[in-house]
Design a protein around this nucleic acid. Structure first.
Lengths: 106, 106
DNA sequence: TTGACATACTATGTCTGTCGTGGTATTATG
DNA sequence: CATAATACCACGACAGACATAGTATGTCAA
């Protein structure tokens, strides 16, 4: 289990990755992050939902209401800006890896 | 130039890497980080000095006074706990890379 | 039928690391 | 003599992660 502090600044990227594969909602995004990381990372609920709010405020995702089995859901869809931002973060990540690797002894 | 927010949580590790190669002081550590990262990352002064304070408070480094050409310097030396912590962070970094990579499209 | 658990989300406040701003003081250099 | 480089520190602001707590519905076994 990795600490969240390392991840800081990449929660948004993880979420954008999920929604780039198809519209999703908070609870499902949470599960997918756990699955994709093979149980190595579980995003805290409050972290996730506040990230979703932030992403929408920044125009990287848009939301719409949905209902499934009588339960309300808020679905999120990635925007063009969101896709562009995601790509930027991916490129940035590659550079970040190279930099931090220089300070790591394996 | 990578943003500092990504690096958050790894400034301590970078500093420990420097001092693990030999005692050093703030100003020099700053320069070495810039050099090692090949100008991709410049740690802000306040970030660096507050990290040094934190690391010492946590027992990962110890300090001693030095003078060079009439200027005072505060040298830092890594402790056993610091070395152990550094190793932990290196292992953690390897895992973190693997996890985040799963959310990145190259 | 009831109680536990999963689903789905929100509100509020705290903590910590990063950073902006600004300051002190000495030495080197053109 | 001014400017840059060296060497460091205080203070406050800010944002993201998180703890805690709460609302509300659906499912399923005993």
């Amino acid at each position: 289990m990795i600490s969240s502090d390392i991840i800081r600044g990449y929660t948004d990227t993880m979420i954008l990755f999920i929604v780039s594969r198809g519209d999703s909602y908070g609870y499902e995004i949470s599960k997918q992050i756990k699955d994709i990381s093979e149980d190595s990372y579980v995003m805290k609920e409050t972290t996730l939902y506040s990230a979703l709010t932030r992403l929408e405020k920044n125009g990287f995702i848009t939301s719409y209401a949905g209902i499934h089995d009588g339960r309300k859901r808020t679905y999120y869809k990635i925007t063009e800006q969101g896709t562009a931002y995601y790509k930027e973060k991916c490129a940035e990540w590659e550079l970040t890896k190279k930099v931090i690797d220089k300070f790591i002894e394996t």
